[in-house]
Design a protein around this nucleic acid. Sequence first.
DNA 1: CGTAGATTTGAGTTCTGTCAAATTTTGTGG
DNA 2: CCACAAAATTTGACAGAACTCAAATCTACG
Lengths: 240, 240
Amino acid sequence: MSIAQMTNVLGTASDELARRATPVTTRKHQRVTLPGAPDETLLLIRKGLFVSRTAIPDSSSTVITLLYPGDIACARAIPAQGHAEIITASDVGEIWRLHGPAVRMLQQTNRGMAHEIAGRLADQAARLALHNAVIGSLTGDERVAALLMELALRTGKHTPAGIAFAMPLSRLDIAEHLALNADTVSRIMSRMRASGLITMTRRRSVICRDLDSLARACPLGEALARVHGTSHASEADNAP
Amino acid sequence: MSIAQMTNVLGTASDELARRATPVTTRKHQRVTLPGAPDETLLLIRKGLFVSRTAIPDSSSTVITLLYPGDIACARAIPAQGHAEIITASDVGEIWRLHGPAVRMLQQTNRGMAHEIAGRLADQAARLALHNAVIGSLTGDERVAALLMELALRTGKHTPAGIAFAMPLSRLDIAEHLALNADTVSRIMSRMRASGLITMTRRRSVICRDLDSLARACPLGEALARVHGTSHASEADNAP
DNA sequence: CGTAGATTTGAGTTCTGTCAAATTTTGTGG
DNA sequence: CCACAAAATTTGACAGAACTCAAATCTACG
């Protein structure tokens, strides 16, 4: 089974999945809770953009991971103890909740499913590793460019004026995700607006004239394009 | 099946695994290559400490991930294109190489294996997320303390003088892993030595009087202990 | 015992964080 | 539809932590 085929196993199994899973339609800022460690519930992201906000005790910081359609959220992949929360960042979202027993049952019926889940988790691990490189080796400007590029690749629409996409994260969310300060993020985006790299109608709507200039503004552009830019359009076309 | 039981599936399947896998014993600085993306080869870390050094094109930086016994390295979980390299950091190491066909065959025979692999990848994703928090929200001193604590928990031996462990990474490795500068790492460790937090016989051998003071020096100590400090001793007891 | 490489340390610079105030946006009720 | 309050964002001034560059030491290894 090739990777390309595997990518759709969760899709082709959707009849069976649909019987076992509990679909949840969410609106902006709605929280979906994920039980803590011993539980093996899976949340399958189906539509929209979600952020996994993980408050780690003993630290004032929260880890913010972005979740796109096709991604899987599970307690074991989250470093915090106890419950975790997945928050809808886009205007609407859809999650399928799969309880532990259902996961085990599906894995017995559909032998490819555990393999597919492992593959997805591997993809998400690759993204986390890349994100480590982003916040570890790039300047503030480059980090913001990386996020914009990621969102443009994942959720952007081509328009005459360039690639348009919604910025579903607040400045504070962006800051926490990119390991920056909210003030600094604001400064950087103002600078980008002034330099003409991006245009913003409203605060939450970005237009980027061309992706190439964004990629040039970010040393990891090539890797980001590989991780975020392939076949996600079909999965993310329900963006608001 | 509880998580505790799952943790050992790869172990209990070792007879079958041993038939399919190619064991590789490595010495310090030895490289084990992992074929690029379409390949589904798995490298199972059995003994020792390895670093996955991923050079991302278009960037001068390399992502360094630490791999401990029980961890899995696979192309899909690595953000770089093409081949990847796993480098032995400890004096000796052992890896089991599982080629794609062997993985598929094992998954048909042993239904729990894909599930176990998914669980391991989830654990590694949790560690990557925690590492994001480390390099994103901690000061240089705190990051170094976090690494020392991780190594102490994973490979430390209790001695009358405190917890002793080898520092298998060079200052440059540490710097790249922690998103710092090699000079800064050196400065920080000198400061820690001066303050009595750690003692160093030779450059690669560290003794920490007590873990608590390290944990106090790192706001994420609690989370690190949870992720690194539970039942790894039995897996890592072959440390050099 | 000498050399190449790794580490340490100093001095100066830059980027980002902190704090505070001004401004814009969003949400609510009349 | 407008006014108002609360929240979010923007911007300025300043401080501090980490980086860069360079030189001095130290180690490992032949």
